Amino acid sequence: MTLLAPFFLNLMKKNVTCACLILAFALALATTAFAQDIEIDTKYKSADTNNAVIEGRVTLPSGFAANRILKITLKNSLTVLSTLQSDKQGEFRFDNLSEGVYFVQAEDGGAEFEPVVEKVMLGRGIVWELTVQLRERKIPRVVNSGPRVISAAELHQPVPAGAKKEYELGLKLVGRGQITEAAEHFEKAISIYPEYLAARNDLGAQYLKLKRLDDAEKSFHIVLAGDPKNFNAQFNLGLVRVERKNYLDAISQLNQAIAIDSARPVARLWLGFALLETGDLADAERELTKALVMGGAECVAAHYHLARVYLARGDKTEALRAVRAYLDDAPKGEYAKEAKQLEKQIKN
């Protein structure tokens, strides 16, 4: 018996090894069968086929069909992707789109309605049916003249030649970044012609840059006393409220500026900022998105503020996309330092 013991011991070890191998094989078969029972969504089995579609129609504020040809612009957060005209019923279509976030802007090119922007979260291979409702534009008493908006009241002022010369010298200095010197020329223009609205507004703007908020506010109030529909003064007064962190008053003031001229994206940028500071994330996102779509590079800061909106909402993916868009477009921008810190915060 003593001599047979090693033989039986080895035999038992071999049987145990075989049993383990058989068990492992059975488990592998079961796992494979279980995996085959799980249905994997077909959209994740292959790359994006870029066949998603946005079908849209534009309606009047009443809900009836627009019955006019409109300019339709498709953008993402970085650039304009496509521009087309709707048909006579206000209907349009964008084909061959990939999955992602898009912004659709509709505008009729006239003074009756303001441009409207809608956000679309487009899934892979789907057809998104979009309705864009126009909003009536309050008729502004302003006309465009270069980069500034000049009110009708300013155009009809009998400005003396000496005052105009000082004003134009001030504008040149503003372009060179010589703020204090520019303010001095605007002051001289006003001393010659105290009713000079443009000079008073631009003087106030320089005071605002110099953080002389009381003087800036006084200048804008004088302009508005003579021209209540002056966009520049209304907008700049809103910026005074922002500088003072009086965000509720800033929101009211900036809305008044937008009522005068709703096509100025920079007013929507600052309105979105003020709304964000009050915690109104939904309205902040709406205004910042409009600013970005309408203003492009002029409103690149909207990317950074939108990143803050998305992060506050808990959407780290969108927040990271927005902050990267800002840093890509404005690596040395006003908020570059804060954006880099925000990017680190999101990734951690």
Rank of each mutant, 00 (worst) to 15 (best):
E184F: 07
T59L: 14
A267H: 02
K119I: 05
P147H: 13
K71I: 10
N10M: 14
G314P: 00
L60E: 10
T73W: 07
K347G: 10
N10F: 12
T49L: 12
P115W: 02
Y326Q: 05
Q341H: 09
A28L: 14
K218R: 10
V266G: 00
A325F: 08
H221G: 09
F94A: 03
D87G: 07
I72N: 02
A225H: 07
R244A: 06
W270L: 11
T42H: 14
N255A: 11
A259I: 00
Y167C: 01
D202F: 04
M1Y: 15
L271V: 03
E154H: 09
R264N: 10
T17V: 13
Q89E: 11
G175S: 04
A216Q: 08
E55F: 11
A5W: 06
A267C: 05
T49F: 12
V127Q: 12
V174F: 03
F7S: 09
L84E: 13
V101R: 09
K218D: 03
Y207T: 05
V53K: 02
R286T: 08
G333Y: 07
P265K: 06
A250V: 02
R135M: 12
E166P: 00
L97Q: 01
L78Q: 14
A274C: 01
E285K: 01
L248W: 02
R148S: 12
S86R: 08
I190Q: 04
L4P: 14
Q178R: 13
L254N: 08
E187S: 15
E285Q: 08
Y102W: 01
E195D: 09
L254V: 06
L4I: 13
A66K: 01
L169M: 14
F231Y: 01
I54V: 14
I22H: 01
E285C: 06
D249H: 09
